[in-house]
Design a protein around this nucleic acid. Sequence first.
DNA 1: ATGAAAGCGCTAACAG
DNA 2: CTGTTAGCGCTTTCAT
Lengths: 348, 348
Amino acid sequence: MATIRDVSRRAGVSRSTVSRIIAGNGYVSDNARQAVEAAIAELGYRPNTMARGLRSNRSEIIGAVVVNVASPFYAQMVGGMQSVCRAADKSILLASGYAQAHEEARAILELIDRSCDGLILYLENAVSDEVKEVVAKADIPIVAIGGEPTSLAWARVGIDNYNGALDGMRYLLTMGHRDIAYFAGTLTYFDTRERLRGIDTALAEAGMSRADIHLEAGDYKERFGYEATERLLASGRQVSAIFAGDDDIGAGVLLALRHHGVRAPEQISLLGFDDNFHARHLTPSLTTIRQPTDIAGQTAARLLLDMIADRNFTPEDIVIPAELIVRESVIPHSAGQRTDHAAEATRA
Amino acid sequence: MATIRDVSRRAGVSRSTVSRIIAGNGYVSDNARQAVEAAIAELGYRPNTMARGLRSNRSEIIGAVVVNVASPFYAQMVGGMQSVCRAADKSILLASGYAQAHEEARAILELIDRSCDGLILYLENAVSDEVKEVVAKADIPIVAIGGEPTSLAWARVGIDNYNGALDGMRYLLTMGHRDIAYFAGTLTYFDTRERLRGIDTALAEAGMSRADIHLEAGDYKERFGYEATERLLASGRQVSAIFAGDDDIGAGVLLALRHHGVRAPEQISLLGFDDNFHARHLTPSLTTIRQPTDIAGQTAARLLLDMIADRNFTPEDIVIPAELIVRESVIPHSAGQRTDHAAEATRA
DNA sequence: ATGAAAGCGCTAACAG
DNA sequence: CTGTTAGCGCTTTCAT
């Protein structure tokens, strides 16, 4: 590979001149510029980013930790980050934390060690003091996105789980539902707790509380939705609507209802959360709360780039609103609804 | 940040000794080792990867270009790469090519410039000579995965689109279907053409050819599936089965059938391709050909790491078999099937 | 077993 | 406007 030295020799100038031309700063004569540009083209010269980074202490790489790239939810988020970073000529170093504290720590350290210029972190666990110290020493901008609101972050982009769940529960209540089940995901996740808070508020508005609904917590898996639904049906408790912690859980609910001969939404309405890829494709198509993950990713990246460019820039926390997407799976509560599905469920 | 010099001073040894200890090679006395390790711990020293990379000409970073991270298909593939790379302490620099030649070129150059130790490329377009030259100069191992079989690659991991489509079409034929539609995706993609080849072979086995089926090409979008289905229905051509170019197209087909009062699979069977996230959740659940993208990603990463470790290692091309996943959307052809849906379709 | 020294490729004062 | 100089932090001969 040609180095800056080769270029300078070929162009008959000094390395500094070449450097200036590449960086586009400083005064350079047209003569020199042309000679250098010609030499660069002839030699196929490309600056060595390692050397440049070592010298300038900047890598033009930003690091991202998400829970799991393989999941469409985070993949979309990463897609959002990427579109912004690409426009700014930054690359993305990607790591997954798999919602486990030690993997998250490993991921953060990996990115720090690769001298990222800044970090976007979607974490599900609190960060240990040890990691915090390393991160603090690195002294690079960090934006937290969703998940655990880590104190590491210079700025936060949150998805409004609270208001999303609030709106969702309100919607069910508005549709006349009073006998409601909520299947919460993993309780240790910050997002889960936020959603529960929103649900509390909505219930309180209707003069109700968690005690008035059927609440079960598990994890964000289709299987949990399936089994929780079976338990609900078996319990004999009659609900007219189920609010699923997310669309995966919702898919499981739908499957269980079908297997037990309960028609959705005629007998039980179902509300999801996330607006995942499959939500539109379920039958009935899932009414759900959209989390605009791509927007969140974009926003986080933009914030980070701004902070990298101007380290005095201290943005406000940004909350991306969740949005109710009305499809087919929630219908108004009707008078005759409460009893007949119990009969059918028993039969099935 | 503490440097190797700080550590050496604190431990009362030379920088070389510290370096040896970190690298774990060379002879070092226990005394020195202990002193250095203590100093490293006290100082919270972390090696600077830029400096190390500059010197050693290795970054421990591997670059990946996929069509689009935001799509679950590629996200899963990246997930596979990541799981392998993480185990080997390599990081992944990720770029998307968006199936456009110039974006793919940009992505490749970006990764080369960031001094990746190797590249995994999922491309949809041929690579220009210009880019080829740069890549050749970089002289790093490259494995191509799926998509366009670029000549850049030192090794290839392919998904067996040919046999997947072959098996799929065979399956439809075995189920007694003879009046079949195939909705192909983007014809310019290598994968698409491979699938068509497989279909040709299957048809030939049954003494048929493309002329005997209803073939339409478009793109890998739900919308195309929807519209192609409408056109098919409107044409009056009677088919007992539709083979969709992928599951997204398949979702569109299903939607159009439903809107036009055609029951699937009773009146028309539907076969997908990919086994995307939503395939299981469609109603009827989609019988489809699974592309094991995560395995492909893992395999590609493993191959690449092996080639990085031993540059004389020249692996065979690996083809990951596709697999028929039987669900509900394909049923055997029945005698009465061919006419009634035409009637209903007209009515709708 | 350890240290000295050279240099990876680049940037940024500084002096001219 | 341009060249000289001095490193960035690390690895790696080469002596000792």
